[in-house]
């Protein structure tokens, strides 16, 4: 397990968060009207955190995630990474979508290598890193397979490898397992948990599933809609290394999950 995130000096100011969302408001201009997606959002993500954003559809959680990736600029306020305002796509961010978004004409390996080609990384280094990630996600035997030959779970694992190829410090995931069946989803949750636990990586995950959020995250951020805002943050007091079943049975899991569901108004079923 040598998915190491490049070791860096801890930020000069000790309490500078890795990602700092300050008083962010985002409005979209559509043809007919303006939509306020986010209002006055403050969020700090520290190095090594696993933050889950949960909330009803249209609460702006995906927008918030995209502002961290630098592909949506806040209308007001700032999003900074290591104290530096994000003004565009960044080298140190990895992104996973709900759909794997693999290019159908490229095999798994070349899909992962797209990241290297687009960012102009050293080819040999990227290749070696790719092998490592394939190994880690048990895809080594499928590196020459085309996406349509893989199951949904395997496709999403390939997408994860692609997102990690350039060893980003922060991994942003937008409902990455939302389109998968329940069993595959559980399985990938455990894998992601292990991956995060064995690295120094920071993860921000958008999800509809309260169980997924609490199982994976060190902090669960509950958002509300119209306009999108943060209602409350829950710290999850569970060890970093988490067994799926043991965690599901843990009183702390239920405390947080219950608290989150309460805020979401029970509108979100029993995920």
């Amino acid at each position: 397990m040598s998915v190491t995130v490049e070791e860096r000096e801890p930020a000069t100011m000790t309490d500078t968060a890795l990602v700092d969302v300050e008083n962010v408001g985002i409005t979209f201009q559509t043809r007919k009207n303006t939509v306020e997606a986010l209002r006055e959002v403050d969020l700090k993500v520290n190095q090594g955190d696993f933050v889950a954003l949960v909330g009803p559809s249209g609460c702006g959680k995906s927008t918030l995630l995209r502002s961290m990736a630098g592909i949506i600029q806040p209308t007001t306020g700032t999003v900074s990474l290591r104290g530096e305002e994000i003004e565009g796509p960044r080298q140190d961010v990895g992104f996973v979508f709900q759909r794997p978004a693999l290019l159908p004409w490229r095999d798994v390996q070349r899909n992962i290598m797209l990241q290297a080609e687009m960012r102009g990384m050293d080819k040999n280094q990227a290749k070696a890193r790719c092998e490592e990630l394939l190994e880690l996600t048990s895809l080594t035997g499928f590196k020459k397979s085309l996406p349509h030959e893989l199951s949904g779970g395997m496709q999403q694992r390939a997408a994860l490898c692609r997102a990690l190829l350039h060893s980003p410090e922060i991994l942003l995931m937008d409902e990455p397992f939302g389109a998968l069946d329940a069993l595959t989803r559980e399985h990938l949750n455990s894998e992601l948990q292990k991956l995060w636990n064995s690295t120094n990586m920071t993860v921000v995950l958008v999800t509809h599933s309260v169980a997924e959020a609490v199982y994976l995250a060190t902090r669960v951020v509950v958002m509300g809609s119209r306009p999108g805002h943060i209602i409350e943050e829950f710290d999850v007091d569970l060890p970093r290394e988490r067994d799926y079943e043991a965690t599901m049975a843990d009183p702390e899991f239920h405390r947080v999950a219950h608290g989150v569901r309460e805020l979401l108004g029970g509108a979100h079923g029993n995920h």
Partner: peptide, 8 residues
């Protein structure tokens, strides 16, 4: 969108 995240 992916390519724009990659800064391509």
């Amino acid at each position: 969108e992916l390519t724009s995240i990659m800064g391509s």
